[in-house]
Structures are given as C-alpha cells and as structure tokens.
Design a protein around this nucleic acid. Structure first.
Length: 181
DNA sequence: AGCACGATGCTCT
DNA sequence: GAGCATCGTGCTT
C-alpha cells in the first residue's frame, strides 16, 4: 500500500486529522510489522490554539512542532504515557495531529493515546524522526474510503485548562464504531 | 455505568 | 514546585 508522503501532512491540520481516519499506522522492527487502522485523532496547532503545546512559543519539547510536516512528535506525560503525534502544516507553523486510537487486524479497538502507543510499542525514540519507512514508523493508505457519515467530531479530551473557547472546539475526529473497513 | 483517585516523571515557570 | 493532550482500580449508585 502507498506510504503517505510529506505532501499529505503539509496541509491544514484539521484536514489531515480528518483524513488520517482509516489510514494504517505501521511500525516495522526486527522483521515484524505491527499495525492498526487509525480510528481517532485530534488536531492541535497554530499560535492561538491555547490547548496546543506550541501556544506559549518554542521550547525544547515542542520544537519539532515548528519544523516541517510529516515528522513524529512523541512526548511523555503523567509520568508513564507516551503520546504519538505527526507534525502538519508549513515549516515555522507549529501544528500536529495526536493519534488517539486504532483498530487491530482482528477488529479490536484500541481506545486512548497511551493504549495506542503501548500496543505498538512506540516511545520517544521516534521523536523527531520522519513518518516514513526509513524510520520504521509510517502511515499507509489502507484503500478504505471513510465517508463523512462515519466520522464523528467532538471537543478534544483533557484540555479543559485551555478555557471554554478552545477546549470546546470540535477538533477531535472519531471513526464511528459501526463503520467497518 | 460513573466518579474519584493515585501512580509517576518530565517540562517549564 | 505545579501541573500535565492518561489509565486502571476500586468504590458508589
């Protein structure tokens, strides 16, 4: 299947978050493919998005968000969880999509960003690496057509600190449970 | 089924 | 030193 190139990610963050639903996330290591379909995403980005890590400017942690699109941004929270994001948009514009859930090849749903990274054994060693085969972690077009009727939009999870305006924006995209590839 | 809470370490003020 | 883009457990209804 076709690997998603930088051009796919070098677009509006909300569009990328929407279109990542139904795509295949693949990690390849030691001759084994670990993979699942992406079923939940969230868009973070721009200077004004108070919920975004980049809102207060560039720091050592979020620097990768300011770089080119199609690069992994993996960070550690709550003392135990790895969060997987892909950068989007033009260089200099800080934005990324958080991958929050997947569906395994046997149809099991992996709900939650920490569960997703745990399932695929993804951690900070992928931070700053390209979302490409060369890094061993990439995203493929699965061939699935995901119609708008199968996509739910809701506010983002766990960002109440950002205030009502930004925590209530419908920047979370979920593949409805009755949709099967 | 839903809420409260503790775990645990890194990041930035 | 505070708080976090979370999750599992254990308790209440």
């Amino acid at each position: 299947m076709a690997e998603l190139e930088r051009e796919f990610f070098d677009r509006d963050t909300l569009l990328v978050a929407r279109e990542l639903l139904g795509k295949r996330l693949v990690r390849y290591e030691d001759g084994t493919r670990h993979e699942c379909l992406i079923s939940e995403t969230e868009a973070y980005g721009g200077f004004e998005d108070v919920a975004s890590h980049a809102h207060r400017g560039k720091t050592p942690r979020n620097t990768v968000m300011f770089g080119p699109a199609g690069v992994w941004y993996v960070y550690f929270v709550y003392g135990m969880h790895e969060m997987l994001n892909v950068t989007t948009g033009a260089e200099g514009y800080p934005a990324a999509v958080l991958l929050r859930g997947g569906v395994t090849n046997d149809g099991r749903r992996i709900d939650g960003p920490a569960r997703l990274t745990k399932y695929l054994a993804i951690d900070r060693r992928y931070n700053r690496l390209p979302a490409a085969r060369s890094s061993g972690l990439w995203i493929e077009d699965s061939g699935a057509i995901v119609p708008d009727s199968a996509v739910l939009r809701t506010p983002r999870i766990g960002v109440a600190y950002a205030g009502r305006e930004w925590s209530e924006k419908p920047y979370r995209f979920v593949l409805s449970t009755d949709y099967t590839i």
